[in-house]
Computed example of a mutant assay.
Amino acid sequence: MSSWRVCIIGAGDNVHVQRWVHGLAARGLQMSVISTTPAPAPAYAVPLLSIPTARAGMTPAARLATLLRGWARVPALVRTLHPDLVHLHALPLPAATLFLRRVPRLIISAWGSDVVQRDARKARLYPALLAHASAVTATSHYLAQVTAGYLRRPRPIEVVPFGVDLHRFTPAPQAPATLRIGTLRHLEPNYGIDVLLDALPAVLRALPLERCVIAGDGSLRDMLQLRAVALGVNTVLVWPGRVPHPAVPDLLRGLSLFVNPSRAEAFGVAALEAQACGLPVVATRVGGLPEVVRDGITGVLVPPGDPQALAAALIELLRDPARRATLGQAARAWVAERYDWQHSLDQMLAVYRQALER
Rank of each mutant, 00 (worst) to 15 (best):
V282Q: 01
G23M: 08
R168V: 11
A172K: 04
V15H: 14
A283Q: 00
V293W: 04
R124H: 09
G241N: 14
L88R: 01
E158K: 11
G218R: 13
C277R: 09
V248C: 05
M1Y: 06
T139Q: 04
L166A: 05
P246R: 03
A54H: 04
G57S: 11
R79C: 14
G216M: 09
T37H: 05
V46Q: 13
T97P: 02
R338H: 15
V335Q: 10
W239M: 07
L184E: 00
I297R: 11
V269F: 00
W4S: 07
R319K: 15
I297E: 10
T59H: 07
G328P: 01
Y142W: 15
V116C: 10
R242I: 09
A350G: 13
P127G: 02
A41F: 05
P176L: 03
E188D: 12
R211S: 11
A76V: 08
A62R: 15
H87M: 05
T97Q: 01
H87Q: 11
L187V: 08
M58Q: 15
R185H: 14
H132N: 06
G268V: 00
T37D: 10
V229G: 00
H16K: 04
A355L: 07
R153S: 15
V236D: 01
R101G: 10
D295I: 01
L77A: 05
A313F: 06
T37K: 00
A26W: 06
A325L: 15
R27A: 03
Q225H: 12
R253H: 07
L231W: 15
L255M: 14
G23Y: 03
Y339L: 06
I34T: 06
L327R: 10
V282H: 01
A312M: 06
L130F: 03
R102D: 02
